[in-house]
């Protein structure tokens, strides 16, 4: 407060107060997730929740094994990342290195618009278009499955990964490109050997944030993943990730029941998992920045 001037103290206090809101929300989220999920540990053990293969929350006695749900989340996340990341990086490189300037002004917003498609719309496309096609084409029991959800999830995360990766590629200074071209490198060689490595921390961050979004995304998996709580054995098996389980079941659960607390526990798992990815991504990005300076 060295430089505090008269008349400046009150606004400063008020603004700091408002700024605290975000922090408060974050703390409250963590607090309420923990508070509402802890009681489940009185009913069953942590090991049974994390390792149990049976998710029968409404049976008597109920069984709260979340392994199939966790596997479902992981499977959709990995498969969608596998589908989306190559395309996203291609897009990022295209926009930053190969795209003519004028077209870029058009393509970048287009990509952004894709990112604004409501997830419920994509889920609906999965149900109405992709599922029947998959079912017919591959002669499946149901087209609502891991693959379907992963394709749509891929569409959701492409704009995120591509735009963050593009930022990172574009921020590589031009003099590095010049140096490479001046040695007789082609554009592709310059991109893969100079620009891409220099942008790597940002690109890793982009991929991690895409994965984070895929782990936490709800509507697409709720509508298109098929919803059966078993560990998938093929990409055409139906899955029930953590997010869709919460969304589908919370509405019909009495507040304070074991099932209610179990769903909060699932939420806590999601929260911690995405938080870890987020912090890891932030760290990579920060380290990359230091290395560049």
């Amino acid at each position: 407060m060295k430089e505090a001037m008269k008349g400046d103290i009150l606004p400063r206090r008020i603004i700091s107060g408002f700024a605290l809101t975000g922090m408060a929300i974050m703390i409250f989220i963590l607090f309420f997730l923990v508070k509402e999920s802890l009681p489940i540990l009185r009913e069953t053990s942590l090991l049974q929740i994390l390792g149990g293969k049976e998710w029968y929350p409404t049976y008597a006695p109920p069984s709260f094994g979340m392994l199939p749900l966790i596997t479902g989340s992981v499977a959709v996340t990995l498969l969608s990342a596998l589908l989306a990341i190559p395309l996203s990086l291609g897009l990022a490189i295209f926009l930053s290195e190969a795209c003519p300037r004028l077209l870029r002004e058009f393509f970048k917003p287009t990509l952004e618009i894709l990112g604004f498609l409501p997830s419920v719309v994509l889920g609906f496309i999965g149900m109405m278009v992709l599922a029947p096609w998959l079912q017919e084409r591959f002669d499946l029991m149901t087209g609502l499955n891991l693959f379907n959800a992963s394709v749509l999830m891929g569409i959701m995360i492409v704009p995120i990964v591509a735009s963050i990766a593009e930022d990172s590629l574009s921020s590589v200074p031009d003099d590095l490109r010049d140096a490479s071209y001046a040695m007789g490198a082609t554009r592709w060689e310059t991109t893969t050997r100079v620009v891409f490595p220099a942008a790597l921390p940002g690109i890793l961050e982009a991929c991690l944030l895409g994965v984070m979004r895929a782990v936490g995304e709800t509507m697409v998996v709720l509508m298109a993943a098929g919803g059966s709580a078993v560990i998938p054995k093929s990409v055409f098996d139906a899955v029930r990730p953590l997010t869709s389980t919460i969304a589908a079941e919370m509405g019909e659960t009495p507040v304070g029941s074991g099932h209610y607390h179990a769903l909060f526990f699932a939420g806590l798992l999601l929260f911690l998992f995405t938080w870890a990815i987020n912090l890891f991504a932030a760290r990579i990005e920060a380290r990359g920045r230091r290395w560049r300076e």
Binding site: P173, D175, L176, D178, A179, S180, Y181, A182, M183, G184, A185, E189, R193, V194, P197, A198, W291, R292
Partner: peptide, 30 residues
Amino acid sequence: SLRRRVGMVFQKPNPFPTSIFDNVAYGPRL
């Protein structure tokens, strides 16, 4: 191949953010 014959050094030093060795080896590897 023109640029291979006519090398260039820029106003601001612009080493690639890799090791010293990899910087020098960049061109020959290309």
